[in-house]
Design a protein around this nucleic acid. Structure first.
Lengths: 339, 339
DNA sequence: TTGTAAGCGTTATCAG
DNA sequence: CTGATAACGCTTACAA
């Protein structure tokens, strides 16, 4: 482990000069600077992040704080992480993966108390999430992937649920459908005030209203079984529904099975869309489902970038909403002609 | 930020005594110890990891070094990460997510040169992977999720491909099948000497031979299209195949489509299994596919644990093989009665 | 059993 | 423009 001292000796200058030369933190004569840089290269010098951090109070480490997965960590969550790690890496930062055990706040207190991280990236936000309050009070810089009900001036990157819902509604309306149903995530996520659950629910209703098409959404399903049951109930109450948007992949499996049991076919008898699911998953179904794919990796990248901007002291709060991408599959078609 | 000094002042002792009391690194009178602990609690003292690391050369940080995803990061890879993070967390360690950019070795040199991490966790191993050599030479402790062709005495946790293949073969043989086909990952992963590709290929062949059932495996498919084509070719050459094991989820999609085009049904005309895929994914298919689910989270946990053991200086090399779990779906059945 | 003091590798503050 | 020197918060001899 070669240190600043070694470089200083070899370049015949003082340690502080080496530091200055290498960091450009104060003017250094061109000649000396060259000499120092050469020495550093010769010795394969690498600054010690710990020492630097201890002194400067900046570790260049960000913590990605992720709650225990509700229902198995999905591809989406993974992409938050890899996106954030990539962006951080590009900007010279490192990403620490911090699982939250039982008590999120205690865990946050712990991880931020260690002096190890410069800031925290929050994900899996609930509308009434108490983590932002804690971090604000503790004076720890942070940003969110997702957002609380009232994010105030906190930096965040979230899905643009309104635009996403509008696009989904426009898609089915454009095909001629007059009545859309929406299956949200499980009741558990609703109770937890999980952001996407609540916001998607609201925005799909609003978008349908705006577009002037009928809408049903009182179904929440988190498993294939529940999805199938919800679908039966739906048709019993609203036989005129011709299009369905489903948030939970597994619920969609149940819906498809129920459709088949009924002797129906997709898309002839039902237009089915997967909301907040990836193209990769949509392709597993037969027929390939239309999907609204969340910009997960980008949200991760944005979250990391705005946190780093904040750490660098730059400007006003950044709040970004990015819509899902509609990937048309073979599960969308005009409604069957009513007799 | 409250430091050891603050605690020392409040407890009316020297800093070193506080350190000793809190770390149990040398005997401290019970009374003093209690006083110190009380003071620490009162002040909400948290040891500064940077300072500690700087002094002790131990940061309690592990880097999970992951290569750019070959084909989109899957659930499996995510579970390596979360499993490792959890295990690390339980043992008082932290996990740094280190994306490898273009040049893995350079990136490794960088991350290990910073003095930031105590050790490295490697994943996505290729049989001829050069990363282990680099780390060995550099004297950086590490462990692998997966393994090279000849891991020597390096710690690793990998899938037990032999046992997995045996179980798969026994499953279909038990149903009465006499000829099994195997579709591996794409040719690209073969060329890259990607561990699972090579090992699964070999072990399925060996298991079939042992069990005395016929076997075909010269098909590699990494997409739905390729999967469909491979299936057509397979049946053209081996019309007597009644069971098929597929490694790539997307290839399976193509196979299923091809089966349907042919007017066949699963499992009546073909027993289909997904190898190295999760139950969650298998459930998306209709019928629900039989799957051999890799113990991803456990491998991540094991990898982290053995690395930490190594850091603590414990014992002999740890090399663990864990078989996949067979999750029977509705895609397995006895072969159709030949006329 | 406890205190003193010397670092760990940086950065930052001063003089020179 | 450059060189001492004092932190940063902790661990670890060594002394008392």
């Amino acid at each position: 482990m070669t240190s600043l001292r070694d470089v200083a000796e070899r370049a015949q200058v003082a340690v502080s000069t080496v530091s200055a030369a290498l960091n450009g933190t104060r003017p250094v004569a061109a000649a000396t600077k060259r000499r120092i840089e050469q020495a550093a290269v010769d010795l394969g010098y690498r600054p010690n992040l710990l020492a630097r951090g201890l002194q400067s109070k900046r570790t260049k480490i960000l913590a990605l704080f992720y709650p225990a997965p509700r229902s198995g960590f999905g591809v989406t969550e993974m992409q938050f992480a890899t996106g954030a790690a990539e962006a951080a890496s590009e900007l010279g930062y490192h990403l620490l993966l911090s699982p939250d055990s039982a008590d999120p706040i205690e865990e946050l207190r712990h991880i931020t108390g260690l002096g190890l991280v410069d800031g925290v990236l929050l994900m899996e936000m609930r509308l009434d999430d108490e983590r932002p309050d804690f971090l604000s009070e503790a004076g720890v810089p942070f940003s969110m992937i997702g957002r609380t009900r009232d994010p105030g001036t906190i930096d965040y990157a979230d899905i643009d649920f309104a635009a996403t819902a509008r696009e989904a509604v426009a898609h089915v309306a454009g095909l001629g459908h007059r009545k859309l149903a929406f299956f949200n995530y499980s009741t558990g996520t609703y109770a937890a005030q999980y952001g996407p659950t609540i916001r998607a629910g609201e925005e799909f209703a609003a978008a349908a209203r705006e577009a002037g098409i009928a809408y049903v959404d009182d179904h929440r399903a988190g498993s294939a079984e529940e999805g199938g049951e919800a679908f039966e109930r739906l048709l019993a109450a609203h036989p005129d529904v011709t299009a369905l948007a489903v948030m939970d992949d597994h619920a969609a499996v149940g819906v498809i099975a129920a459709v088949a049991r009924r002797g129906w076919r997709i898309p002839d008898d039902l237009t089915l869309m997967l909301v907040l699911s990836s193209e990769r998953v949509a392709e597993m179904f037969h027929p390939r489902l239309t999907a609204l794919e969340p910009p997960s990796a980008e949200l991760g990248r944005l979250g990391a970038r705005m946190l780093i901007d904040r750490l660098r002291g730059d400007g006003p709060p950044q709040q970004r909403l990015v819509p899902c991408r509609l990937v048309a599959g073979d599960s969308s078609a005009p409604p069957r002609a009513e007799v």
